[in-house]
Simulated assay, not measured.
Amino acid sequence: MNVREAAAALLGTVSERSPLSEEWPGLDIDTAYAIQDEALRLRRARGETLVGLKLGLTSRAKQQRMGIDSPLLAWLTDAMVLPAGVPVPSLIHPRAEPELVFVLGRRLAGPGVTAATALAAVDRVYGGIEIIDSRYTDYRFTLPDAVADNGSSAYFSVGPVGLPPASLDLSLEATLLEVDGQIVDTATGAAVQGHPAEALALAANALGARGLALEPGWLVLTGGMTDAVPVRPGSRIAAHFSHLGSITLAG
Rank of each mutant, 00 (worst) to 15 (best):
P160A: 06
A8R: 15
A250R: 11
A8D: 08
D37C: 15
L177D: 04
S157H: 13
E215G: 07
M225S: 10
P94S: 12
D227Y: 07
P144L: 06
H243P: 03
G12E: 05
A45P: 01
S157A: 11
L214V: 13
Y155L: 13
G128K: 02
R43I: 00
A121W: 02
V179E: 08
Q36N: 14
L50T: 08
F156L: 05
L168C: 04
P111G: 03
G85K: 11
M66H: 12
L40A: 04
F102A: 11
A148P: 03
I92C: 06
G67H: 10
V14A: 09
A191M: 09
T117R: 08
I129R: 02
S18L: 13
P83R: 11
G223V: 05
T49S: 13
A203D: 04
P233S: 09
A116E: 07
T142H: 02
Q36S: 14
T248M: 11
L40Y: 03
F141Q: 09
V220A: 00
T226H: 01
V158T: 10
S246N: 15
E48I: 10
G128F: 06
A120N: 09
G112H: 12
Y139W: 15
S235Q: 08
E130I: 09
T248G: 06
D78R: 05
G12M: 02
L163N: 05
P216N: 05
P71E: 01
S21I: 15
E48L: 12
R95D: 02
A154V: 09
R4E: 15
R95L: 12
A213Y: 13
S171V: 10
V122D: 00
L172N: 10
A34F: 04
S167Q: 10
A213I: 07
L202D: 11
G56W: 07
E198P: 00
S242N: 06
L170V: 14
R236S: 11
A199I: 00
H93S: 12
R41E: 09
D123P: 05
A6R: 04
G208A: 11
L214T: 14
H243N: 14
A121R: 07
H93Q: 08
H195F: 01
D78E: 08
G26K: 12
T188S: 13
T114Y: 00
G26E: 11
G47D: 08
W75K: 03
G159C: 10
T137R: 12
A115L: 00
I68L: 02
A120Y: 02
